[in-house]
């Protein structure tokens, strides 16, 4: 299986959250992301740092990961970003 590149992995994680009504718990996200725990932790930290996701403690459901508006924008512009990166071989 071809190795996913970084941007694609970010997109895949955000897409999972979006398809789960914009929020999801950590464990199901880890499972659906097809990443090892270590790599998932790295990506989670990076997505948080880039403000593409946020974590909130909900009273009824506990800690959940939410897709931010910036994360939503990333998903919308993903194809353009990839096309640009490929066009200029960046």
């Amino acid at each position: 299986m071809r190795k996913r590149d970084k941007l694609k992995i970010m997109r895949d994680i955000l897409k999972v959250i979006k398809e789960n009504h914009m929020h999801i718990k950590m464990t199901p996200l880890l499972r659906k992301s097809n990443l090892s725990s270590k790599r998932f932790a790295d990506y989670r930290a990076e997505l948080l740092q880039k403000e593409l996701i946020e974590e909130r403690e909900e009273r009824k459901t506990g800690k959940q990961i939410f897709l931010t508006s910036k994360g939503m924008e990333f998903l919308e512009k993903y194809k353009a970003i990839i096309n640009f990166v490929n066009e200029f071989e960046l």
Binding site: K6, L7, M10, K50, L52, K70, E73, F74, K77, A80, I81, F84, V85, F88, L90
Partner: peptide
């Protein structure tokens, strides 16, 4: 905007 969203290093250097 592209860089702000992705923080992709290649775009930064470009």
């Amino acid at each position: 905007k592209m860089y702000d969203l992705s923080k992709y290093q290649g775009i930064k250097y470009f």
